[in-house]
């Protein structure tokens, strides 16, 4: 949508080649000022300032010296950077598909005429409005190796040993993924529901007459009908997963070892625990660059489709 708005807007600005009336311009810009002031100070300025800071050695007291690209060199020769980057993308690989598939399944169920539909939909959606601290606290306790209900449930199902969900590097990402899925799947579901409602019912009627079974109807009508919502969701979830911080900060503290340290936590630790603001600013710039790269890919993909 963002891309589309940009494009539409460009079009209309070109069409209307009006003469420049200074007073008219100023009057219109006046209405943008209230938004533009905080936007400039707390968004545009920090972006530029971050680029500037990244070229310096910068402590909590302020600028110390100009070092050109030395901070970036430090980042790229450090093996930590690649492992945190990999951690972030590993989480994307786990969380994005699971949350989208689960969200789609829930949306398909809710879209049927089942009993207590509204209540069940609310139950699925409710976790989304809770704050990340509440969600992380709950799952921190649920995943407790000794007294946690998750292991209790697995014992009932016949698992003989306790799983150290949050301290075993083989399971810790799954614990974070389950937590995140539970928290945000309601959002995905609601968007798919909105998408499902826009697919015309006569397509299904026609397919039924043609003898297509439920699976084929899903494959040939439902999925294509959801393709634009799907694309938006995939990119939205990728970006969301890359921003992972609260869950690991509260549930694992980046551990065991460094196995759940992510890009954002890396920036946080470098900046606020080690007081190396310049280096952290350079890391932020790398993160910004990754975000912009994803936006470009998204732009290209939606562009091709919309023509």
């Amino acid at each position: 949508m963002m891309e589309r708005t940009l494009r539409e807007n460009k079009g209309s600005a070109l069409r209307r080649a009006e003469p420049l009336h200074l007073l008219k311009e100023l009057k219109a810009i006046l209405y943008l000022i209230p938004f533009l002031v905080p936007f400039s100070v707390f968004y545009l300025w920090p972006v530029l300032r971050g680029a500037w800071m990244s070229l310096h050695v910068w402590g909590i007291q302020g600028m110390e010296k100009y070092v050109a690209l030395a901070n970036y060199r430090k980042i790229f020769v450090n093996a930590d950077f690649y492992s945190y980057l990999w951690n972030s993308f590993y989480f994307v690989l786990l969380c994005t598909p699971t949350v989208i598939i689960l969200g789609l399944v829930l949306a398909l169920i809710i879209n049927q005429n089942i009993r207590m539909r509204t209540l069940i939909r609310s139950v699925f959606f409710l976790p989304y409005v809770l704050s990340v601290s509440v969600v992380s606290f709950i799952w921190l306790r649920l995943f407790d190796a000794k007294n946690g209900p998750v292991n209790a449930l697995l014992h009932v199902l016949g698992l003989p040993v306790d799983i150290n969900w949050l301290t075993d590097h083989r399971f810790v990402w799954w614990a974070i993924t389950i937590t995140t899925d539970w928290w945000s799947v309601g959002f995905v579901m609601v968007l798919f529901l909105a998408g499902l409602q826009e697919i015309p019912t006569d397509h299904y009627e026609a397919a039924k007459i043609d003898g297509a079974n439920a699976w084929r109807r899903f494959l040939h009508i439902t999925l294509p009908g959801l393709s634009s919502v799907m694309k938006i969701q995939i990119f939205y979830q990728i970006i969301n997963c890359l921003k992972l911080f609260g869950q690991v900060q509260i549930m694992t503290g980046g551990g065991p070892g460094d196995s759940t340290n992510t890009m954002i936590r890396y920036i946080y630790v470098t900046g606020f625990k080690k007081d190396m603001f310049g280096l952290a600013a350079a890391q932020s710039m790398v993160f910004c660059f990754i975000m912009l790269l994803i936006a470009v890919v998204q732009f290209k993909i939606t562009d091709r489709k919309d023509g």
Binding site: M2, Y43, V47, R49, F287, C288
Partner: peptide
């Protein structure tokens, strides 16, 4: 203004804090 959607707060934490 729309460019504000591109970069999340997480990516400008350090300069935002400095500001």
């Amino acid at each position: 203004i729309v460019s504000g959607l591109l970069i999340p707060t997480e990516a400008i934490l350090i300069p935002l804090y400095e500001t």
